[in-house]
Amino acid sequence: MTKSPTITFPDMTRRGLGALPWIAAAGVLAYAFFVGGYLTTVMSFALIYVVFVTGLNVFMGYAGQVSFGHNAFAALSGYTSAYLTTSHGFAPLPAFGAGLALALSCALIVGYPTLRLKGHYLAMATLAIGLIVYEVAVEWTSVTQGYMGISGIPPIGIAGYEITSERGQLAFLTVIVALATLVSWRIRESRFGRALSAVAGSEDAARALGISASRYKLSAFLASAAFAALAGSLFVHVVGFVSPEVYGLHMVVLAFTMLYVGGIGTIAGPFVGAVIISLLPEMFRQFKDYQDLAYGAALILLLIYAPRGLSTISSLFRRAAAKKAVVS
C-alpha cells in the first residue's frame, strides 16, 4: 500500500463529509431548478416522494414499526383532492384538509386496534388496507372513474394565484420538503422522538419505564399517515391527473427502496434516498432494455457498500480511513 498522508481524519473534514449527501442532493435540485429540462419533472416527483418517505421514516425509522400500506393514505387524500376540486369546485387547500381528515380517520381505524397488539398485526392490516383502497379506486367508478382516472385537476394555488410553471412547482415542493424535513428533525429531537426510539429499541423496556408504547406507536402512525396524505394530494395537483396505478403497490416498494438507500431512521435519509432513487433510472436511460438491470445492479452495490444508507456515508469514509490507517 502506498503511503497516505491522510492517516488521521480531521474532524472538520468528517463533518464536511456528513453534509456531503445534503450538498449533493441539493446540488441536483438546484441544477434542476436553474437548468430545467425534464430533470425538473423527475425532481418534482422525487420531492413528492421525499414527503411520503419522511412520513414512513417517522413510523419505521423512529418508531421501529412496519407498514406496507401507506400508499392507502396517499390514495385517500389524493383522490379526495382530485374529486373535490374537479367535481365540487373546492380550492386545493380545503380539499386537502378533507383528504387529510379522511386519511387520518382511516389510519386511526386501522391503527387503534392493531397497534395495541405486539407483532405483525399492523403490518398485515396495512397491507390489506393498501389493497382495499386500490380496489375501491378501481371499482367505485362514479367517484374515481376507475382506471380512466380523474383528469383536469387544477394546479396548486396560494391565495388565488395558481402555480402552473414547472419551476414554480419545484420551488413550492422544495419549500414543502424543507418544512417536512424540519418537522421530522423536530420530532426526532423531541421527547416524543426519544420515546419513539425507546419503543423501537425494546417495547417492553419502554413500557416498564412508563412509556405508553401503544399510544406512541399510534401517534407515530398518524403522523406518518399525514405525511403520506400530503404527498398523495401534492401528486394529483402537480400532475393534474390521478388513476389507481399511481398509488399501487409499486409506490410502497419504491418508498422502501428510498428509505433504505437513503438511510432509515436518519433525518437526511428520505431526501437523499428519494433523490438518488429517482435519478438512478434516468442515469441508465440510454441503456434502453438494460435500464432495469443497471438500476438493480446499482441498488445492490449501494446496499452492499452503504448498508446503513447513503446519508451515513461519512461513517463509511471514517471506516475506510481507519482501515487504511491499520493497513499502512
Binding site: F45, F235, S243, V246
Partner: peptide
C-alpha cells in the same frame, strides 16, 4: 404506469 409516463413524455 402513469407517473413514469409523465417523466418520459417530459423527457
Amino acid at each position: 404506469e402513469p407517473q413514469e409516463a409523465v417523466t418520459v413524455y417530459r423527457k
